[in-house]
Every structure is written in structure tokens, then in C-alpha cells.
Design a protein around this nucleic acid. Structure first.
Lengths: 121, 121
DNA sequence: TTAAGTGTACTATTTCAACTAACACACTTA
DNA sequence: TAAGTGTGTTAGTTGAAATAGTACACTTAA
């Protein structure tokens, strides 16, 4: 179902996150279908269940899956992810705007720049 | 002139950067005045010259000082820093806007949000 | 109630990148 | 030429992140 690339320098859990994210975004899994259990996938890949657990926790944080304790992990609908993602971006814009204002760049100027009406801030 | 706090968990070079940045922003140093040499400051603080070098390289990257090989490091005018800082912020806005567009958020919407005309993205 | 499945928490170990140091080199000025 | 300056390369240290080991807790079905 999924394979680890040991030539890849990235951590194992990150590779797993990335692969499932791609599959889910592509719509390979049906919404609410069950993910492989942490143990079975760990067994299959010959790694520790905690590493799968870490990957699944990250996938949940990103809104790709949801967990029911004692039952398993399940695929959530793509919309959940989009909502989360947009929320994260909004927070980043908030912080960046504050940073810009702290060096004297007004919001009007930022908006104009984003709309392409100004060449620079 | 400056002191290292070994109780502080941050790396030494970062502490040095932060302290000089504060002093320069406050206008304690005249523009074009000479910074302590990497060796003299290293001696004074009983650390390795390379650590000072690293701090100075970062201060130069941020536009606070400039280097003349064989002569020393010198304080640059505050305006240089502002220019650099605004440039960095601009790059961050560029990246963030691309990220937003990749999940379907239009630039018009972003601009409206920044101006407070929309409650969320 | 029990057994076999599920996720979770805690701790220990390993690994790797960041930090710092040692030292040699190159440029500038007097 | 000597004494100051910054720079580059390499090596050692160290602390946080990643992974593993193990025990615990929840869910379901027989």
C-alpha cells in the first residue's frame, strides 16, 4: 500500500504523512473509510507503531483523517482539510500584517500591492 | 560592552546579534562607526572568534552592519535595515498569496480581508 | 466476561543538524 | 614586515527530533 524510501533523508513519519495526504487529496480513499491500523501498518513496514501513530496524529492535525479511540483512524472529507488550511493561512496573514505595520507599512499599501496596483511595499 | 548569559538557552551568536541589533536600532552607535573586531570581542567574552564572525555575518545579512575585508565591520544607517526588512516581508507576502491561491482564495478576497472588509478568508 | 482488536502515554535510545572551537589563510594599513 | 583585520575548512560537542520498547486503556463481538 505504501513504501518507505530509506534513501530519502526525510523522517519516516513525514514520508508516510506525505503519501497518505497525496492519496486522500486525489480521492483514492472514500470518505469515512478506515485507515490501516497503527499496528498492522507498522508490521507491514517493519517499523514501530509509534512512528505510524506520529504520522496519523499529523494527518489528523491537518484535517485529513479523524480518530476514534479503540476503533481506528478514518478518512475525513476533503472539505475539512480545506477549511483547516485556509484557517492556517489566515493566521499567517494576520501575523505578517502586524509585522509590516511595525515597520510602517500601512494596510492600504499591502492590499494595493497584493492586487498588483503597487510594484513594491 | 556586551555580556553573554549562559542561563539563556539561545545560542551565543544569537544573543550577540540580538544585543547589537537593539543597540543599533536605538541609535547608540553612530553610522559608519567601527564595530569591535571579531578577535577583540571574542577575547573579551572568552569565546571563539568564529562565533562572533557568525553573529556579524547575520547582522550584515539583516543590513545592520557592513564589512570591509582586512579593515573591519562598520555600522550602517538604520534606513538600510528598513529597506531590507520590508523586502523580506514582501517576499513572505508573495509566497503566502501563492499558497492562498493554491487553495482557491482569490487576491481580491485577501485584500478585502486585510482591509477589514471581510471577517475571514 | 473475556479475547482480540484498536489507539495512547511514558520512557529510553539513537541520530543528526546546529553550534562552537581550532587553526591556517588572505587582505589592509602603518 | 608586523600587527591588525576578516574568512574558510575542518573537527568536536551537544541538544532536540526521531524512533523504538513497553505497558496501559478503550471498543467490539462472541
Amino acid at each position: 500500500m505504501i513504501a518507505i524510501d530509506y534513501k530519502d533523508s526525510r523522517p519516516i513519519y513525514e514520508q508516510i504523512v506525505e503519501k497518505f495526504q497525496t492519496l486522500i487529496v486525489k480521492g483514492v480513499f472514500e470518505a469515512d473509510s478506515q485507515m490501516p491500523s497503527v499496528r498492522s501498518l507498522a508490521m507491514e513496514l517493519s517499523i514501530n507503531p509509534n512512528t505510524i501513530q506520529k504520522a496519523y496524529a499529523e494527518l489528523e492535525r491537518r484535517g485529513f483523517i479523524y480518530t476514534i479511540k479503540g476503533r481506528g483512524n478514518f478518512v475525513s472529507s476533503g472539505k475539512e482539510y480545506l477549511k483547516y488550511k485556509v484557517g492556517e493561512i489566515q493566521i499567517k496573514f494576520d501575523k505578517l500584517c502586524e509585522e509590516a505595520e511595525s515597520v510602517g507599512v500601512k494596510r492600504e499599501k499591502i492590499a494595493a500591492y497584493i492586487l498588483g496596483k503597487e510594484m513594491s511595499l
